[in-house]
């Protein structure tokens, strides 16, 4: 039997590692390329600006304006983050800095259970609880007449869905900060809250941004739960009580029936392309901030 010498073994191992790395590293590129080629038909016939900022969506007569979907997606995502982010941050600070360790031991499985619930269940819960709640109480409270299926309903459902993801990361980040750092601040005569605000959170800032970015990306791509409560009306929402439509919902709702209309499949691929590009953009911004604040 031929036995590999050390250099050959080294070379063989390295080659496999490089191949694995290349597969992982080029995957997004191929994804991008595939979507681009598939949506080329649409991009060839229409101006990019018209596609992105056109407000009229009538595939039957060849009108493809994606603006309502883009706006709907952004509204829903940002609103969900605005609701979810402060809650997660304060909860993580409480659990790691103030409460006894036993609470954390109880909370961890609870958070994991939340993360494991299928999104269709969240959607159903949204239809049964959130939508009537908005129609009956929240809408009238603000003097708005609404059926409940709205941007706000989607944002509320989403904000609950992303809590476990953000919270889990935040807890890990706060736990990784050495207790001696807090002791150092306390030893100088700072109060607990001063220490948390000026030392712990500052130290954790890159991680906090990463956690929020992760939640944002998840919220932006969430499909099922959103399309069940957002209303699916192609319209520019004027307030959060209006129904809307999101990019993932557009793809999921229409994928089966696209063959009868020309360029429809191309348009859906373009919607996916927008999703991909926006996600990458979010990621890029996030990394910029992480690097910016990671110097301490």
């Amino acid at each position: 039997m031929y036995i590999l010498n050390r250099w050959q073994r080294h070379w063989a191992n390295n080659t496999w590692m490089i191949i694995s790395l290349l597969v992982v590293a080029t995957l997004p590129f191929f994804l991008f390329l595939g979507l681009y080629l598939k949506s080329f038909l649409l991009l060839h016939d229409y101006h990019l600006g018209h596609l992105l900022f056109g407000k009229i969506w009538k595939p039957g007569i060849g009108q493809f304006g994606f603006f309502p979907f883009i706006v709907g997606s952004i509204w829903v995502t940002l609103l969900a983050m605005v609701i979810s982010a402060p809650i997660c941050l304060l909860a993580a600070i409480y659990v790691t800095q103030y409460s006894k360790t036993r609470l954390l031991r109880i909370m961890h499985p609870a958070i994991d259970i939340l993360a494991g619930i299928p999104s269709v269940v969240y959607g159903l819960w949204g239809i049964l609880v959130i939508v009537p709640f908005i129609a009956r109480y929240l809408g009238p409270l603000f003097g708005v007449d609404t059926v409940g299926y709205s941007i706000l309903a989607a944002a509320l459902v989403l904000s609950i869905m992303i809590v476990p993801f953000i919270l889990n990361i935040l807890i890990e980040i706060f736990r990784a900060i050495p207790v001696e750092l807090k002791e150092a601040s306390l030893a100088l005569g700072a109060t607990e809250w001063q220490s948390i605000k000026q030392v712990i959170v500052k130290k954790a800032l890159p991680g906090i941004i990463a956690a929020f970015g992760f939640g944002l990306a998840r919220a932006f791509g969430e499909t099922m739960a959103v399309l069940m409560v957002v209303g699916n009306v192609v319209e520019l929402p004027k307030s959060v009580f209006d129904p809307g439509y999101t990019l993932p919902a557009l793809i999921a709702n229409n994928y089966g029936e696209m063959l009868s209309i020309p360029k429809y499949d191309s348009a859906l691929m373009f919607a996916a392309l927008i999703l991909l590009v926006v996600s990458l953009f979010f990621n890029l911004i996030m990394h910029f901030f992480i690097i910016r604040y990671n110097k301490y």
């Binding site: 050495p178 750092l181 002791e183 150092a184 306390l186 100088l188 005569g189 030392v199």
Partner: peptide, 18 residues
């Protein structure tokens, strides 16, 4: 808080504030 300001603490490893 007054009490702790009355004492400087130097720990095993340096933990500079961020």
């Amino acid at each position: 808080y007054k009490l702790r300001q009355h004492m400087g603490l130097l720990s095993q490893r340096p933990y500079p504030l961020p």
